[in-house]
Design a binder for these strands. Sequence first.
DNA 1: GATGATGATTAGCACAGCTTATAGTTCATG
DNA 2: CATGAACTATAAGCTGTGCTAATCATCATC
Lengths: 307, 307
Amino acid sequence: MNSSYLGDLELRHLEALRAVAAEGTFGRAAATLGYTQSAVSQQVAALERIVNEKVFDRPGGPRPVQLTPVGRMLLSHADEVLGRVSSLERELAEFKAGITGRIDVGVFQSVAVKVVPMVVGRLRQEAPRVDVRPFEGVDDQHLIGMVADRRLDLAFAVGSAFDPRLQVVHLSHDPFVAVVPADHPGGDSISLRGLGVVSMIGQPVHDTCQMKVDAGLADAGIAPDYVFRTADNAAVQSMVRAGMGIAIMPLLAVDGNDPEIRICRLEPPIPHRELSLVIGPDPSPVTQHFVDIAVEVCREVVATAPV
Amino acid sequence: MNSSYLGDLELRHLEALRAVAAEGTFGRAAATLGYTQSAVSQQVAALERIVNEKVFDRPGGPRPVQLTPVGRMLLSHADEVLGRVSSLERELAEFKAGITGRIDVGVFQSVAVKVVPMVVGRLRQEAPRVDVRPFEGVDDQHLIGMVADRRLDLAFAVGSAFDPRLQVVHLSHDPFVAVVPADHPGGDSISLRGLGVVSMIGQPVHDTCQMKVDAGLADAGIAPDYVFRTADNAAVQSMVRAGMGIAIMPLLAVDGNDPEIRICRLEPPIPHRELSLVIGPDPSPVTQHFVDIAVEVCREVVATAPV
DNA sequence: GATGATGATTAGCACAGCTTATAGTTCATG
DNA sequence: CATGAACTATAAGCTGTGCTAATCATCATC
């Protein structure tokens, strides 16, 4: 009593039903389906055997056949079924074209703030039905592990110890810059040494990004004075805007459209990060699409930055 | 570019997809489907060839297979398609059980008033989703022609000249009765001769039913005095109720639940009609169901009538 | 009654799809 | 590191399905 007595039903039968109903004769239906009249006759006969009901009245002679009541009922269902198959077909084509599908992407704070929204925004313009699911991980290795597990399609990463089975696409270097209030004296660059004597805004002590900044400053013999720490990049920027201090942030995490802040090159620079995408095996077309856009976006962001 | 590149897709492939996704291994899926593992493996391989995409990740070893992104997409469509097939199956079963379907039934006034509503009402209790479409025809021959044409499934009829190809089911005799106000003097029968001297309510002169009444009265040498004529059976009955006169009607057209009128046998009777159903070729189960109920209803109506 | 348009039937053939049997792959385990 | 367990893939062979081609049967129309 599983698939029960319709187990022999196949799409071919429903297509024949629909074609004959539409064309009125077996012969014309056969022509549109690319079969011979005999084949369609046998297909309809098979359908009638399967449902154990006459589906068409054949008046004989040159008059067109007509659906029986059962036939009409079956036809309405056939239209539904075949319609679903068509939409499967359509969505499959869209999937292959990279304009539909789902992307589970691993992100972290500094990249989630700006790069991911830009990529997603541009992707949605080209392919509105794509379903992007960012997953914020605790660190690189966590995300890379999930990519290897197939639980993510791809992930942003700054480290360099990658799983050799995973494809890696380099996006851009991500220099550390100083974020200062717009009315801060000075030009587009700022002396690293000067940072020892000003108030600074930073992220929590154990943040991977922050640790890199502190290491860079320590190497230059500088002991920064953090007056406020927060894990929220936007909050950091707000504090700078309010004149509370200066922040050192990765360029890709700064909201460059804020007119009340200015971005300054560090002199000398702190060793920068390299931003990459780690891509799982057999990436889907839409994942590839995401990668392409991410590369494009990063190139633009770095190119237009005033550093 | 007609059915395009999914032309080889069959329900079997979608069933295999669903089963493997549900069971986690090809072997268990095969068991639930009643195939060997090899068959399911080949079915999935065929599906992957058809869509030209890997549908499952096979990690190897004892770990279960997992859907790829395309696989997930295909599965959601497969569920839709197979769900539609199931509902086709369900409705087909209901059709065969006579509890769903459509009935186009030919009716005429005297039967439309009472018998048809009773039959439809009872049918709807047993099979609420049946779609009954009464069609009121001008006369018997008209309706019978439509039944023969398959434009009606069945029709009520009072004549006797039927198409030999059509099945005829006798419902009951339908005696003519006198309808009098409840306070009318006398008992359950009324003398035909007495009708020559009272006011009468009738139907239009050329109504088939009325002509039969008039012929019966003429045979008895009676010239009735019609003070009002209307084609509407309910209006006739209202006039009787108002005391305007007496009506002669077929029993099956009288609303017996009206406490303000009384039904009287005619002495001697006028030749009665025979009510039948004319049934088209290959009646559907629900049509048969309708017939059964009609027989039942007519038997009850005649049995409980006070004549 | 001949004619033409149509569906049904038959025979034959090719191939799809199943089963059985076996090989290949991966992970766990001693 | 070899071995076994739990899978899937593949090969070979056979059966039955489903197609084509050709022919027959049926019914309106002229």
